[in-house]
Computed example of a mutant assay.
Amino acid sequence: MISVHRPIAVFDAGLGSYCAVELLHRMLPDRDIVYLADRASFPYGAKSKAELLAAVDGAVSLLAGYEPSAILLASNAPSVTILDEVRSPVPLFGVRPPVREALAVAGEVAVLGVQSLVRSAELAAFVRAEAGAAADRVHAVNASALVELVENGDFLFRREHTTAAVAEFLDDLLGTYPKVAALTLSSTHLPWLRDYFATARPELQLFDPIEGVVEQLRPLSVPGTGTVLGLVTETDRYPAAEFRAMLTRLGITLDLHTV
């Protein structure tokens, strides 16, 4: 296995968090990164709070063995619901909807995420804390159908279908909330669809929660060789070979090790 020096560790249960790895690698090109696809715990979004906490605790413990400078839980739902309860030996970050930033430029905002996030009491409390009196101008919207377009590869291999699906989703959203002018892409899968959003509704402003986290990680990280080490857990239902095939379909070349 290739060696890394005080890497930034990034993890999630699915494919979406690789967007975070690409962004970190682009913005901090000399930092080493360890990327864990925790497929043995897939999907995070369908777990109870106790199950999710146990899965995230396990991933953090595994990554701690690589002596990271910091760990990024690159999944919105657990970042909002259980991050503060996770024990970590190094600074631990999550990705949360950039509600304040979106409200600064838009009268109304839609937070797009998986069902477990948008229906959670924790997200409602987070929005109230971030938006204050403007909380009624923030709308949580279930975008699980769009997440599936990424997870199953449709966004790459069924482009016309994906274009139509995203356009229909946004038409429905704006039919319900016609004053929405900004979207937070609060599933790490959704940035993969950024071009589709921009094509369907170029007037909407898009906010990626990952972008703000990079600047928080920068001062904690240390120079390395720019190496990206990939790790994957597996079960009989979600074998590592299947995940490797997904990366290949996306044109991603990664030194990936089963742990």
Rank of each mutant, 00 (worst) to 15 (best):
P191F: 00
N142D: 11
R194I: 14
V86Q: 07
G175N: 13
L72I: 03
L149A: 08
K179Y: 06
A64S: 05
L83F: 00
A55W: 06
E211D: 08
P7Y: 07
L190T: 05
L146D: 06
S187W: 01
L28S: 05
S221I: 07
V105E: 05
H257R: 09
A245P: 03
A70I: 07
E122D: 09
G14E: 07
L190V: 02
L250A: 11
A125M: 11
G14H: 05
H189E: 04
R237L: 15
I33C: 13
E22H: 03
R6G: 01
P43L: 05
S79H: 09
D208I: 06
L206Q: 10
P209D: 02
G45I: 04
A13S: 05
N76V: 07
F93V: 07
S186K: 14
L231G: 07
V56H: 01
L204D: 01
P91A: 12
Q115T: 07
S79V: 05
K49Y: 00
L28T: 06
W192K: 03
R119H: 02
S3T: 14
A54F: 15
G153T: 15
I210T: 02
L183T: 11
S79R: 00
V127W: 02
V99A: 05
A129N: 06
F197Q: 02
L217I: 12
T162S: 03
F197M: 06
Y18T: 12
V56G: 01
H139W: 11
V138W: 04
E242I: 11
R128F: 04
D195H: 10
S48C: 14
S48N: 10
R159N: 04
S120Y: 02
A59D: 03
G58Y: 02
M27A: 11
P7R: 08
L185T: 14
L247V: 01
V90I: 15
G107H: 13
A164Q: 08
E67F: 05
I252H: 09
A124M: 04
A135D: 15
L193I: 04
A129E: 09
G94R: 04
Y238R: 15
L62K: 06
Y18F: 14
E168Q: 12
R31Y: 00
L174P: 07
F155S: 07
R237G: 08
P89Y: 12
H161F: 15
L247F: 07
D32N: 04
G132A: 12
D57R: 10
A54P: 00
A164H: 14
Y177R: 11
L146P: 01
S116E: 07
E203C: 10
E242P: 05
A133V: 13
D195E: 14
Y238W: 01
G212L: 11
R119W: 00
I71K: 01
E130T: 09
V109E: 06
V222Q: 13
L250W: 11
S88Q: 09
G230C: 10
L250K: 05
